[in-house]
Nucleic acid binder design. Structure first.
Lengths: 142, 142
DNA sequence: CTGTATCCTCTTAGATACTG
DNA sequence: CAGTATCTAAGAGGATACAG
């Protein structure tokens, strides 16, 4: 519901190490709005959409093809969330059949570069990670 | 831990053109194991656990207190997944009452630094993001 | 083409109770 | 203290149909 205001003034049960909270407490506090931003940005399809849009602008069906495995519903939902957060711009060309282009806003490009940097690390290190897995232990196979 | 000293030569992702898709198509393929790694690392609690462990080693109950809002079950599950991936080490002191310490492996520290970098960006920019939200449009409010 | 609406299934996550 | 087991609710996600 993305409420504005309506602060919970007396609701402060963060009683962890105070220095930690001062230094970087926002994300460790479950009431902080940054938690929601984090959730959107690290969502299953959000990450891939941001990276795809960093390469170039895409229209809806292009994104569907580029991002393997995403359904129409989840792609639309992901794009709406990212647009609502101000990371993605949506341009609907007034033609028929419809033609909609998605692109990154300046702040969206900023964060997408962070995401891509992170994704690049994963791709470069996946084989290293897989071969370094503890073998005696049965992975929860998530 | 001795890295396998594999192929990675450092940084080579300066280009973002079409050749990128060939080089970094892994994540866009739903059958790629890197998708699973990504999922674990970007999981709701995985991100926060990695950042907490980057500050210092924690025992179980310390993590519970530091990471606001996490349940015992989810913390245990998250830690097991991260341990199975080789990002986290678990050391159980043979004492009573039990005392278990969690720490990052070398590769875990590497990725945790990426995660922290990303989280830092979010914390620094949350207010900017919130104030820049498109207001005319009703966010889907998830 | 670009979605929305509905239905359905599977996973995630919290609460609670219990064990070593 | 450090978990596990069980139950349940909420949300993610997919398939299909349909609308603008």
């Amino acid at each position: 519901m993305s409420s504005t205001s309506a602060d919970q003034t007396g609701k402060q049960q963060e009683d962890t190490a105070l220095s930690d909270l001062l230094r970087r407490g926002e994300l460790f506090n479950q009431n902080c709005p940054s938690r929601e931003i984090l959730k959107h940005l690290t969502s299953r399809w959000g990450v891939l959409v941001l990276i795809a849009l960093l390469e170039r602008d895409h229209r809806f069906s292009e994104l569907r093809r580029t991002v393997g495995g995403v359904s129409e519903k989840m792609l639309a939902q992901t794009l709406q969330t990212l647009e609502a957060d101000g990371f993605v711009s949506r341009f609907s060309h007034p033609v028929v059949p419809p033609h909609v282009d998605y692109s990154l806003t300046p702040i969206g490009r900023e964060v997408a570069e962070k995401v891509r940097d992170f994704a690049d690390w994963i791709e470069l290190n996946t084989s290293r990670i897989l071969s370094a897995k503890p073998k005696g232990r049965v992975a929860a196979a998530r």
